[in-house]
Write a protein that binds this DNA or RNA. Structure first.
Length: 307
DNA sequence: CATCGATGTTTAA
DNA sequence: TAAACCTCGATGC
C-alpha cells in the first residue's frame, strides 16, 4: 500500500538488508540497464524516504524509486536475510525455496519472473522491483530539485515528538493555497506522504469537510489535522497496513466484534451508514481520484457553505 | 481471453 | 481536464 508509511518501511528494510554491503544491481526486464550498470558492485550508504519518494545514496549518485500506484519490492533470501515477502502494492506471497550458493558464497537468486525493473542482490538475499513509476539514477542537482518540491513529511518527526518547524511549514503551505483541504492533502508540495486513504480517513477523524478552503482552516484545526496524520502514518509504519478503524473504538460499542476486518471509516464505504452518525457515506471524483467523506460528521463550515 | 481498476504522478491540451 | 505510464489480480464472458 504505497502511501508514505510504506516508503519509510522500505527505507528501513533496505537499511537492514543492503546498506553498507557490496551489492549487485541488474535489470532483468532491461529498462534500467544503464542505471543498474552504474550502481552495481558498489556499497550503498544510506536509504532515505521522504513522502512517497525513496532514495538510496551512493556517494554523489542517488538511486530514486517512486512506486506509483502499483510498484512493489519483493524480497527473498536465506534465514539470515529477514524481510517481508513484499513491500508496496499487493503481490502474491512467494513460495518456499531452498537456498544454494555460488563459489563466492553469494546466494544464487532464482530466475526473475515477470517484469523486474531492478534486482538488487547481496550475499544472503535479493530484492526485485516491479512496476515503479520512477526508477532512475540522479545527480546531486537533480536530487535537490526533487527535494525542493516536497512539503514536510510527518514521518520525519522523531516518534513521540512534534517538530513545530514542520507543522508551521504545513500551516503556511495551506495558507498560501486557494484550493480545498481535500485537494491540498494530495499535493506533495503541501504535505508529503499522504495518499487517497489517509486523506479520506484523516479528514473524517477530524470532522473536517474536504471542501473547506485550505486557507480558511482555523489554526487549531490545522494543528489537529497534522497531529492526526502523524498518528495515522506512524501506526501504518508500525503495522505495515493502513488501519484507521479499530474494533475497540468507543463509537462502535458492541458492533466492534463484527467489524474486525474493516480497516477504514469512510474509504471505499460509500453508500453505507457512517459508523459514527448513521448518515450515508458519500463519494465523488476530485481531480481524477475518488474522494470519500461523511456528510454528517464532516459538514461544510456555515461561513463557507454554499446555498 | 478481454477488460477493469488500484494506495500515484507527470505531461499535454 | 484528460491522457499516458507502470503491472497484475480480480472479474466477467
Amino acid at each position: 500500500m504505497p502511501e508514505g508509511h510504506t516508503l519509510h518501511r522500505l527505507a528501513a528494510q533496505l537499511e537492514e538488508n543492503f546498506i553498507g554491503r557490496p551489492w549487485r544491481v541488474s535489470s532483468p526486464q532491461g529498462r534500467f540497464e544503464a542505471g543498474a550498470k552504474r550502481l552495481t558492485d558498489r556499497v550503498p550508504e544510506r536509504a532515505q524516504a521522504w513522502g512517497k519518494q525513496l532514495f538510496v545514496h551512493l556517494g554523489p549518485d542517488i538511486w530514486q524509486v517512486h512506486l506509483g500506484l502499483y510498484g512493489a519490492f519483493s524480497f527473498r533470501g536465506d534465514s539470515s536475510f529477514t524481510a517481508p515477502a513484499t513491500l508496496g502494492a499487493p503481490r502474491v506471497a512467494a513460495e518456499e525455496f531452498t537456498p544454494s550458493y555460488a563459489e563466492d558464497d553469494w546466494i544464487i537468486p532464482q530466475p526473475a519472473t515477470g517484469a523486474v525493473r531492478a534486482r538488487i542482490h547481496v550475499h544472503n538475499g535479493w530484492a526485485d522491483l516491479r512496476g515503479p513509476a520512477r526508477c532512475a539514477v540522479l545527480n546531486p542537482m537533480q536530487y535537490e530539485a526533487i527535494i525542493a518540491r516536497l512539503g514536510p513529511d510527518p514521518l520525519q518527526q522523531p516518534v513521540g515528538e512534534t517538530d513545530t518547524r514542520l507543522l508551521e511549514q504545513f500551516r503556511s503551505n495551506l495558507a498560501r493555497r486557494r484550493i480545498s483541504i481535500g485537494a491540498a492533502l494530495m499535493d506533495q508540495a503541501v504535505i508529503a506522504g499522504v495518499g487517497n486513504i489517509y486523506r479520506a480517513e484523516s479528514l473524517f477523524e477530524e470532522g473536517v469537510s474536504p471542501d473547506t478552503p485550505a486557507n480558511e482552516l482555523r489554526g487549531a484545526a490545522v494543528t489537529a489535522l497534522w497531529e492526526r496524520l502523524t498518528e495515522q502514518l506512524r501506526t501504518g509504519f508500525a503495522e505495515g497496513i493502513i488501519r484507521t478503524l479499530r474494533p475497540e473504538a468507543p463509537e462502535l460499542g458492541a458492533r466492534g466484534g463484527d467489524l474486525r476486518l474493516r480497516r477504514h471509516w469512510v474509504y471505499q464505504h460509500q453508500g453505507t451508514p457512517c459508523l459514527r452518525c448513521g448518515a450515508t457515506i458519500a463519494e465523488r471524483e476530485l481531480q481524477g481520484r475518488r474522494l470519500y467523506w461523511c456528510p454528517g460528521c464532516q459538514p461544510l463550515p456555515a461561513a463557507t457553505a454554499r446555498s
